[in-house]
């Protein structure tokens, strides 16, 4: 699972509210689709848990289901209180987990 965190806008100060995009490369199989070649149902494979942590404190927790699109993008807001690290932990229903982090560096 490849992941990416984007913080928008690029320049922000302490006290600003920024938008955080978390992107993951994931097939998000619903478990309903049939494989065109073999005719067998492709088993469900989707991200079911995403946790956003800022300086190891919980910012946002998400429980997600197979109805999210392929390569999902999850965007939330965050009020910048200090400089620090934003960590995102994502898990899928097959037990694969990934940890991504981004530095939050407010200017001024």
């Amino acid at each position: 699972m490849k992941t990416l965190i984007k913080v928008k806008p690029k320049d922000y100060k302490v006290g600003d509210t920024v938008k955080i995009d978390f992107m993951a490369m994931h097939p998000m199989e619903s478990g309903m689709r049939k494989d065109k070649d073999t005719g067998k149902i492709v088993p469900a494979h989707y991200i079911n848990e995403v946790n956003f942590l800022f300086n190891d404190k919980v910012l946002t927790k998400m429980v997600t289901w197979e109805s999210l699109s392929v390569n999902p993008v999850l965007s939330i807001s965050m009020k910048v209180s200090a400089a620090g690290t934003l960590k995102v932990l994502a898990k899928d229903n097959k037990g694969e987990s990934v940890e991504t982090s981004a530095a939050i560096t407010p200017k001024g």
Binding site: L59, K61, T64, L68, V73, L74, M78
Partner: peptide
């Protein structure tokens, strides 16, 4: 999706 927010979010927004 079920999104559990905290006051640290600043704004209650979610997009996907």
């Amino acid at each position: 999706a079920n999104v559990y927010l905290t006051p640290a979010n600043g704004e209650a927004t979610f997009a996907t």
